[in-house]
């Protein structure tokens, strides 16, 4: 069938692109390092610094770009399918802000010094609470406005509580550090961050992928999906838990990186024929491509300024979101 071949072709293309960008992400930076020739041919004191840069700095950063971009794209695609709404996205719905809040509380309460996993777990807890709130407040409504407003309200509440935490902090330097951290970045991340987040991101991705068939059936509405043998509750739990675990873990190490889950599925949807289930694998790959590209762009274009990744994705994403709203006529409503 044409659609399946197109899906396979697009997935392969995006996978190759991800590999290429991963390689570039290792090679590009203040100094050009060719990872292949370094690993294969050269050894000795002259390349020791290159080795350290490559393995300690760039490799974890590239790995995190792939996994975090992937989970953000994937969760965007799943949330859009679940809520049958093209404007759903973990960042827009307050998931990222709530995860940040969880992380900030963990840092300030000193939990992170006691127990390394406190950071991802408490980010995850924040994410979980926000998704549950969202389901509670807007889950039954089919009105897009209710959903967006609920997301805004949750984001504001999480933002206010984060500010409160910062406000109460006695150490201004720590507060500044947290503010920068919250802007979202992959700079100076190590393999500790990789080992903290990647297993949880993979777990979240498995839960999210398990909803694919149900999301397809949900295209015909909840009642029909139910009559086609879909467990709606189970699907919702998988999507909510998967998003909270995956995005929570991602936010815990990178800070809030927004709009990836909005832009990526939206761009890919017409290419894979609109079936929500088909959108999942390509959105994961597309998210990885998007974040790798953005992270490389940050390094190349503004090497001196330490521009934050989350700032760049928001600068691309917010106008995109505006454009979406502009073109979102009632008649085009999916």
């Amino acid at each position: 069938m044409g659609a399946r071949r197109r899906l396979l072709g697009l997935s392969l293309g995006l996978a190759v692109l991800t590999a290429l960008l991963f390689y570039l992400s290792l090679a590009l930076g203040q100094v050009w390092i060719d990872p292949l020739s370094l690993w294969l041919f050269e050894t000795g004191p002259s390349t020791a610094a290159d080795h350290i840069i490559l393995t300690e700095i760039r490799t974890p950063r590239a790995i995190l770009s792939v996994f975090i971009g992937g989970i953000l794209g994937l969760s965007g695609a799943v949330l859009q399918g679940l809520l049958r709404n093209p404007l759903a996205e973990p960042g827009l719905l307050g998931v990222s802000a709530s995860a940040s809040l969880g992380a900030v509380i963990a840092i300030y309460s000193g939990l992170t010094t006691l127990f390394a996993y406190a950071l991802p777990f408490s980010a995850l807890g924040g994410a979980l609470i926000s998704v549950m709130l969202l389901r509670l407040l807007a889950g039954r409504s089919t009105n897009i406005l209710v959903l967006i407003l609920t997301g805004i309200a949750i984001t504001s509440l999480a933002g206010a509580l984060t500010s409160l935490t910062l406000n109460l902090s006695s150490n201004p330097f720590a507060a500044l550090e947290i503010v920068f951290w919250m802007m979202g970045s992959l700079t100076d991340r190590s393999f500790v961050h990789v080992s903290l987040s990647v297993p949880l991101i993979i777990l979240g991705a498995i839960l999210l992928f398990s909803t694919a068939r149900a999301l397809d059936a949900l295209s015909l509405g909840q009642d029909v999906a139910h009559s086609l043998g879909i467990h709606l509750r189970r699907t919702q739990i998988m999507a909510v838990l998967g998003t909270a675990i995956g995005v929570g873990a991602a936010t815990a190490v990178s800070g809030a990186i927004g709009f990836v889950g909005l832009i990526v599925p939206h761009l890919l949807r017409p290419l894979v024929g609109n079936k929500p289930g088909h959108l999942l694998p390509v959105s994961a790959l597309g998210g990885a491509v998007f974040l790798l590209t953005a992270d490389i762009a940050v390094r190349i274009l503004f090497p001196a300024n330490d521009l934050k990744l989350g700032v760049v994705t928001a600068l691309i994403g917010a106008p995109f979101f505006l454009w979406l709203l502009f073109t979102f006529h009632r008649g085009d409503k999916p």
Partner: peptide, 14 residues
């Protein structure tokens, strides 16, 4: 109700 721009064959296949 049909959400997204599914084509007819995809709908029947569901």
């Amino acid at each position: 109700t049909v959400h997204w721009a599914l084509n007819c064959q995809e709908i029947v296949a569901l």
